[in-house]
């Protein structure tokens, strides 16, 4: 059980690296963006995992007198912000990809590089 308590960290690591792999090894720009969002999601998972308290519940105190355990609200707040940042980045990235497609007629990184070298 002690080890299982670390499982989230490993999944975080695995997701992070899967996303990273897609970012580096894939040539397609949309694929890179998908990789990027996996990459960011991994971090979300890390923070949210930190926030968990055993036997706790979401930090919404409906009855202040009841002695409940609450999970940590702070990482959740941070990740709310980070999710927004993530979707913003993705949107901007997609806009750039669309423009690249119009300018180069391809969204494969290596082809773009070849076209750039030629010009």
């Amino acid at each position: 059980m002690e080890i299982l308590g670390l499982y989230n960290y490993w999944v975080f690591g695995a997701l992070l690296m899967i996303g990273f792999f897609a970012l580096i090894a894939r040539q397609n720009l949309v694929k890179k963006l998908l990789g990027l969002s996996i990459f960011q999601s991994a971090v979300f998972l890390l923070y949210i995992s930190l926030a968990k308290v055993e036997g706790g519940t979401a930090p919404i105190i409906l009855d202040p007198t009841a002695a409940e355990i609450f999970s940590n609200p702070l990482p959740q707040v941070l990740i709310l912000t980070a999710i927004v940042v993530g979707i913003s980045t993705t949107a901007l990235g997609l806009a750039i990809v669309v423009r690249i497609r119009e300018a180069y007629d391809t969204i494969e990184d290596d082809e773009i590089r070849r076209l750039d070298r030629r010009s």
């Binding site: 890179k32 990027l36 990459f39 960011q40 901007l92 750039i96 990809v97 690249i100 773009i112 750039d116």
Partner: peptide, 19 residues
């Protein structure tokens, strides 16, 4: 048009850095 590819690269790298 190379501005676009440059900025895409920057976006990827920058986001990795920030993350």
């Amino acid at each position: 048009r190379q501005a676009l590819t440059a900025v895409f690269k920057y976006l990827i790298m920058g986001t990795i850095g920030a993350t």
